[in-house]
Amino acid sequence: MASELLIRPLRAEDDRSSFTCGQGDLDRYLEHYAGQNQFKFGLSVTYVAVTAQVILGFATVCPGAIERVSMPAAARRRLPAYPLPVLRLARFGVATVAQGQGVGEALLRHVLGVALSLRASAGCLGVVADAKPDAVAFSRRYGFVPLEGVTAGTLHGEPTPMFLATASIPG
């Protein structure tokens, strides 16, 4: 890549209208909803990979938790029914013009760094990546495994939630 790639949080003034990653729902999310989620509601943060002020990729993360449907009475007496705090990698897209150039890897590295920082500062046991079908193999490469037995909390379009323990991430 000729110009230096910078990864930073989305800014209100960033031009999101020309971004296209080949998946309409992700393009629409970045253009119309990533800003609302981040600036208006404070529910998530979108990191963008930019070069020369052009967005080449994005990753949206938010804190989340994995919970058990129910806790058996015997276990409830012994254990607090704590949910497992995680960082959720909910949206991830690389511009078609930048695919195969390491943008996705740079974004993932940044997100995993955020998870490690979160673990140190507030607690985070894992990263859940909501992987679209064509991203499952990419996620598996880095050790993500599909979460089994999900009964609630999947994203619209039902991507596969995949889990990576933060303890497995080299610090």
Binding site: D25, Q36, G64, A65, E67
Partner: peptide
């Protein structure tokens, strides 16, 4: 399509298996 639920709920058995797997986290690939 724009909303990200914060909670992911697992069947009891799957949750317990996940917790168990984290007792000894897999080595990084």
């Amino acid at each position: 399509e724009a909303f990200v639920p914060a909670r992911i709920v697992l069947e009891n058995k799957a949750f317990d298996q996940l917790v168990k797997s984290m007792e000894k986290a897999p080595k990084p690939t």
